[in-house]
Design a protein around this nucleic acid. Structure first.
Length: 277
DNA sequence: CCGCGGGCCTGAGAGC
DNA sequence: TGCTCTCAGGCCCGCG
């Protein structure tokens, strides 16, 4: 379920359990997630202290006292559980349940502060990797991320520049983590709706030929920030305005349109054909 | 280089 | 009940 806001929420949940604590033990219950664990996975983590737990796009980064970085990605279905007082739901870390969701508990960290952190991921699209600090920027994925949408680096000018020569749709451009980091299928639909821009529109149309931001780029950059901020703050009231709301009335004030669902590059897009141009 | 389709996995829900 | 089918909030690879 994780796009930027969910990953940020996971980070905040993990913070008290991880930051400043030493990793006492690591158990992996299988040889791979999406990819194999790096060589010496447990040995490289055990004994290290987590100096900081940060986030870049949808990636969680545990910066270690060993000067290595533990990179964690939740894929589609990854989640973490934290249990305190040295007690996990499964007292035996090697226990591998077969008939409950616990059979997808793939990694268990025991921390010096008594926390037990369990990574669960049924579909195994998530992964963990360990890299030196310097190698981070070179790694495919994390190394190629565009600006953090909630930082000052991300604004209409940056967005326009990134979209300038894109012949794809706005939908595809915003899903591309090199354009902006952290948006996924839900928040792209939400941001475009808030900005009243059609997901089918060519990405390059938000920039002038010279690459300068048009008004639509200003609106879209602001909408992206807004949608993510609201989601992180957990203002649940109007969680998703269009996502998974095919057939419902468009929530835009004064708009009498109906939310439609279309498929773009194999994935669902929800939008209002009336107010999104 | 760019854009698209397919593949990777399992589980939930719909329809028969 | 149980089967089959579709779909799911991510990402990478290979093809044209």
């Amino acid at each position: 379920m994780p796009e930027l806001p969910e990953v940020e929420t996971v980070r905040l949940d993990l913070l008290p359990a991880m930051e400043g604590a030493r990793i006492e033990s690591v158990v992996t219950n299988r040889a791979d997630l999406r990819t194999a664990f790096p060589p010496g996975f447990g040995d490289r983590l055990e004994g290290a202290t987590v100096r900081a737990l940060t986030r870049r796009g949808k990636y969680l980064l545990a910066e270690l006292s060993s000067n290595e970085v533990l990179v964690m990605h939740l894929g589609m279905s990854g989640s973490f559980r934290v249990d305190y007082h040295g007690r996990s739901r499964n007292p035996d870390p090697y226990y591998y349940a077969r008939d409950t969701s616990e059979r997808h508990d793939h990694v268990v960290f025991r921390m010096s502060n008594g926390a037990t952190i369990t990574f669960n991921d049924p579909r195994r699209f998530g992964f963990m990797d360990i890299l030196s600090r310097e190698a981070l920027g070179e790694r495919r994925g994390v190394g190629q991320l565009g600006p953090e949408p909630l930082s000052v680096d991300f604004d209409a000018a940056a967005l326009a520049r990134a979209c300038r020569r894109r012949k794809t749709t706005l939908k595809a451009a915003l899903l591309d983590q090199r354009v902006v980091a952290g948006l996924g299928n839900i928040y792209v639909s939400e941001a475009l709706h808030r900005a009243h821009l059609s997901p089918r529109r060519r990405a390059s149309t938000i920039a002038t030929p010279a690459g300068a931001p048009r008004e639509s780029a200003v609106t879209l950059a602001a909408a992206i920030k807004k949608v993510l901020e609201i989601a992180i703050a957990g203002r649940d009231g109007d969680r998703f305005r269009v996502y998974d709301r095919e057939g419902e009335r468009c929530p835009t004030r004064g708009c009498r349109g109906t939310i439609r669902r279309i498929t773009q590059s194999g994935r669902s897009t929800f939008y209002c054909p009336v107010c999104q141009k």
